[in-house]
Amino acid sequence: LVSAVLSPQELISRIIEAEPPETYLMKDVKRPFTEANVMMSLTNLADKELVHMITWAKKIPGFVELSLLDQVHLLECCWLEVLMLGLMWRSVDHPGKLMFSPDLILSRDEGSCVQGFVEIFDMLLAATARFRELQLQKEEYVCLKALILFNSNLCLSSSEGEELQSRTKVMRLLDSVTDALVWAISKTGLSFQQRSTRQARLLMLLSHIRHLSNKGIDHLHCMKMRNVVPLYDLLLEMLDAHIMHGS
């Protein structure tokens, strides 16, 4: 495994290099803000980000060494968590707002026109505020995102031969990224006790992000069922795959 021969510092450098570019909506949200207009903008953006996410995953050291089936499975399980963590990272400097893209920054009120969205919006704002309090560093952020990817599903494909090897690789990749996170935290100049506390606080936020992602999937599924917004291609495929895994 390539990640096994990299030092934590080298691994973080590679993960930072893998970061996707900023994604722009490239057009104004239609006014007035209606449920359909906002959802159309959010799903357009998600579609673009998903394509970048695949490139990102392929650049994370070790990912392409997994079986293709496991690569597919991991991404299908974690895509909304990865999108949401990216959203939180971008929104850290915009208290009370969510920066979906540099040209789409929404306040709670603007998001409230979408039925059922306020609850998710508030949870996203709360998690973002927590990252703000913790003064999340970029090195820590990229490690958390890679951890989400490799930790997205324990139940990978069959447990025989090549597939078993792939699952063992996922566990080793998780260990490598965890070591990288520990290294990133150690740079902050905290005491041993404070470093352990910070590590725990950061990792505990991942369970909130998983919860948020599940809420978001349910919400998007509901929007699809109500025909509020048409979903196409990759986003539709990722939503359907998540619903299938969930069921």
Binding site: I54, K58, D233, A241
Partner: peptide, 24 residues
């Protein structure tokens, strides 16, 4: 790998050695 899996866009993008951004 099932036929259904092979037809997935995600599957194709992961397998392609060129950037998925170029394909999108």
């Amino acid at each position: 790998t099932s036929l259904k899996e092979k037809h997935k866009i995600l599957h194709r993008l992961l397998q392609n050695s060129t950037s998925p951004v170029d394909l999108a």
